[in-house]
């Protein structure tokens, strides 16, 4: 019952947003449930994620934010015991349909992880990895172009343009994370998923990443998981609050933080659920 009411709320909130921003819905999730073996990690989640918008997932740790995020690019398929039910559509197409190849889906839905995980290869090779696998460049010049464009978009180009052949693992933490973002951008995805992308970084690197996320919104639908409510408030336009595997409340970020409808959201935001 409660879930249904929230779904309606979410839809209403969406319509308001669409009217205002003029952007369509990119991903629709309906009745999503996830189990890890016996552990029911996500319970009947309905949500619409807008294009060209930053959507933040917040909630206490262990509430299923990462799990739900991984449903959106089918990364959960790589976990043996994980079972996903429900319907998730991207541009109206069911991404769990049998004819959808998860490998191709992941090229369209890029992902950035909590801990920067550049490959032990050169900076250039890190960024070129996706385009090479998917055959996006016909020749070296094109590949060079993709690498440069991606690094520029990730606001890293100026810092590394003179040492593209240096190992990516030799960069600072913040630079590594931006390298991972560049790597994800290089396959020209439509959606970028970020799982606590700044939680392993210092405040300055965090600010750079946040600024970058705001710029990325122009091209992609960005979904960011964060445990920091200030971060959610700073970078996102829409916020979803998860609690114990349920999507408790979803709406405009401003509304969620100033005028939450659900008492659980309010308790979390005011620091009573941790």
């Amino acid at each position: 019952m409660a879930a249904k009411a929230q779904a309606e709320q979410a839809e209403k909130a969406d319509q308001g947003d669409q009217a205002q921003a003029g952007e369509g819905v990119k991903i629709t999730a309906r009745g999503v449930n996830v189990w890890y073996g016996e552990n029911h990690a996500i319970r009947d989640v309905n949500v619409d994620i807008d294009d060209k918008t930053v959507t933040a997932f917040i909630g206490p740790s262990g509430c299923g934010k990462s799990t739900f995020l991984r449903c959106l690019n089918r990364m959960n398929d790589t976990i043996e015991i994980c079972r996903v039910e429900g319907r998730i559509e991207m541009d109206g197409q069911d991404i769990y349909a049998p004819e959808v190849d998860p490998v191709l889906l992941r090229a369209r839905v890029g992902m950035v992880f909590q801990k920067p995980n550049p490959f032990p290869k050169s900076i250039y090779e890190n960024v070129a990895y996706g385009p090479r696998i998917h055959g996006l460049a016909k020749n070296r010049a094109e590949l060079d172009g993709i690498v440069e464009k991606s690094l520029r978009r990730a606001a890293l180009w100026d810092e590394v343009k003179d040492r593209l052949s240096a190992p990516g693992t030799g960069l600072s933490g913040g630079q590594q994370q931006r390298l991972c973002i560049a790597r994800a951008i290089a396959t020209s995805p439509e959606v970028l998923l970020m799982d606590e992308p700044a939680s392993a970084l210092d405040p300055i690197a965090t600010a750079q990443i946040e600024e970058l996320i705001d710029e990325l919104r122009a091209k992609f639908a960005v979904v960011i998981v964060t445990h920091s409510m200030q971060q959610a408030a700073r970078v996102s336009q829409k916020t979803a609050f998860f609690h114990l595997g349920e999507l408790v409340e979803y709406g405009e970020t401003g509304q969620i933080f100033t005028n939450p409808r659900d008492p659980r959201t309010e308790s979390y935001i005011t620091g009573r659920i941790g």
């Binding site: 690019n73 990364m75 790589t78 490998v103 191709l104 889906l105 992941r106 090229a107 369209r108 890029g110 992902m111 992880f113 801990k115 995980n117 550049p118 490959f119 032990p120 990895y129 996706g130 696998i133 998917h134 991972c180 790597r183 994800a184 396959t187």
Partner: peptide, 12 residues
């Protein structure tokens, strides 16, 4: 994490 990074980019 390296494997995840690769899978996340759509590698088999």
């Amino acid at each position: 994490a390296l494997r995840d990074g690769s899978y996340g980019l759509g590698a088999t």
